[in-house]
Structure formats: structure tokens, C-alpha cells
């Protein structure tokens, strides 16, 4: 079943066309990878889908609903949650608190609820604590729950970001370069975590430069180059696609 359908999505910044009529469909349960050289428009594509940017033209359908141009928070509330390359953790808060803050959209209550703590608030807080624990277990950070996030090694900080995004209760999790800067060991752990999340029935779309990870995980791949989709297919198909090889290695070497 199609979960996300991107059709003819275009975004231009002045004269620069960052995304040029990009279309692809994402099935429920996919681990879908978007790859391409630097500046190919991958992050722009993520920004268009998640509502950070409005597309110039084209549309995004999610679960049969048009979400083109909706506000970021509304899209997140529908279950499309993403991690950002540049957005940091709450470094001085504990690992557990980072995940608990992630529950913001999935919970409710303001000052009154905080002061008087009626039954539903206490139940909700208990739920937040328990589910935070579960998510930390999922990414393998349970034993570091009380540690200040800043003290985590780089690779584990990345896992914490994913756990924090998971707290919002995504149906579609968008990961922007989750393996950037990780070593092989850390990347392998990351791959396992992504697989475990996917096993829970959560559809994943990721931008990634680490080809080993992409080839290992992805069910389907879209390749962007200069804002255009130049190929789509399974890892095996994409690997041997001449247009992809040309984009990555340069035309001259192939001729």
C-alpha cells in the first residue's frame, strides 16, 4: 500500500531549481533511501515533504491525504516525523529527558495540568516514563539513561536523536544522513536500530551517503542529481544504472 506519494515536486530558489519535478511512491513498510551527490537537492526534498519549505509546484500525498504546504507541526502530528542533520540534542539534559521532551506532540497539558496533576496527567507522565525507557531500550541506550546527553559518544548521540524522534509516534520516520560522521562499527549498530524500528511496522525514508548502509538496508532507492530524479529501483538495479554511475563518478571516465 502506498503511504507517501510525491508527485512532480518542484522547488526553485530564485533561478536555482533545487528540486525539479521529483516523483516517487513509498510503500508502507519500506526502507526507502534517497541518494545523490552533494547539492543534489536531497535535504530540500525532505524539507518539502516535512513542511519546512513550501513547494513551488507539485504535491505530497500521505496516507491518501494531500499534505502539500501544511505546517511542520501539523504534518508531524499526522505521523511524519524527521530528524535533522543540524538540529542538536539538548546537551545538558539527561539522555532520558531528551526522549521525554520528544513526547511533546504526543502528549498534552500546560501550566494548570502541571500544578494540579489530575489523574490523566499522572497517567500520561507514567506513560511518558515507561515509553521513554522502551525507546532507550530500542536504540540500546537504556544503561545511559541518567547520563547528560553531551557525555555520549558521537554514535550514541545519533541513536538518541532517533529515539527522540520516535517519541513523537511516527508512522513515517525521515532520517537525514543518520550515518554521517560515524565509523563502521557505529554505522553497523545504527543499521540494526533502523531495522528494529522498521520491524515495528514503521516506514523509513532516509538520505544517506554511506553506500554500504544504503545497499544493506534499503528496499528501494531514488537517485537525485542536480534536483532531478535520475534513477529509481532496488539497490541491485541502481548499482548498475549507467546514469547513476555517471552522476557519481563523472561522465568522462565512463566513455
Amino acid at each position: 500500500m502506498t503511504l507517501l506519494s510525491v508527485s512532480n515536486l518542484t522547488k526553485s530558489f530564485g533561478g536555482i531549481v533545487a528540486n525539479d519535478s521529483v516523483s516517487f511512491d513509498l510503500n508502507e513498510g519500506d526502507i526507502y533511501a534517497v541518494i545523490g551527490p552533494n547539492g543534489a537537492g536531497k535535504t530540500t526534498l525532505f524539507n518539502l515533504i516535512s513542511g519546512v519549505l513550501r513547494p513551488t509546484s507539485g504535491s505530497v500525498q500521505y496516507a491518501g491525504r494531500d499534505i502539500t504546504g501544511l505546517a511542520q507541526a501539523d504534518i508531524a502530528a499526522l505521523g511524519v516525523v524527521r530528524t535533522y542533520q543540524l538540529v542538536q540534542l539538548f546537551r545538558q539534559r539527561t539522555v532520558e529527558e531528551n526522549v521525554q521532551i520528544g513526547f511533546h506532540l504526543a502528549t498534552r497539558g500546560g501550566v494548570g495540568a502541571a500544578l494540579f496533576r489530575p489523574g490523566w496527567v499522572r497517567r500520561q507522565e507514567r506513560m511518558v516514563r515507561e515509553k521513554s525507557r522502551e525507546l532507550l531500550r530500542l536504540v540500546g541506550l537504556e544503561s545511559q539513561a541518567g547520563l547528560v546527553a553531551d557525555k555520549l559518544p558521537y554514535g550514541q548521540q545519533r541513536l538518541l536523536k532517533i529515539a527522540r524522534a520516535m517519541a513523537a509516534g511516527p508512522k513515517l520516520l525521515m532520517l537525514d544522513e543518520p550515518a554521517a560522521g560515524l565509523d563502521t562499527q557505529e554505522t553497523s549498530v545504527l543499521g540494526d536500530v533502523i531495522q528494529r524500528i522498521n520491524d515495528q511496522g514503521i516506514t523509513i525514508v532516509l538520505i544517506e551517503h554511506d553506500m554500504n548502509l544504503v545497499m544493506r538496508m534499503a528496499t528501494r532507492i531514488t537517485v537525485l542529481d542536480f534536483g532531478k530524479k535520475i534513477a529509481e529501483g532496488t539497490p541491485v538495479e541502481v548499482k548498475v544504472n549507467p546514469a547513476v554511475l555517471a552522476a557519481y563518478l563523472g561522465e568522462a571516465e565512463l566513455e
Binding site: 538540529v87 542538536q88 540534542l89 539538548f90 546537551r91 545538558q92 539534559r93 529527558e97 521525554q100 521532551i101 513526547f103 511533546h104 502528549t107 498534552r108 497539558g109 500546560g110 501550566v111 495540568a113 502541571a114 496533576r117 496527567v121 500520561q124 507522565e125 511518558v128
Partner: peptide
């Protein structure tokens, strides 16, 4: 120790 407080702490950090 509430959702409200956690949101404030989050704002304070980033």
C-alpha cells in the same frame, strides 16, 4: 517536572 517544564528546558537549550 511536567510537560510544560520540559518544554521550557528544551527552549533553554536549543
Amino acid at each position: 517536572g511536567s510537560r510544560f517544564g520540559r518544554a521550557l528546558l528544551a527552549i533553554g537549550e536549543s
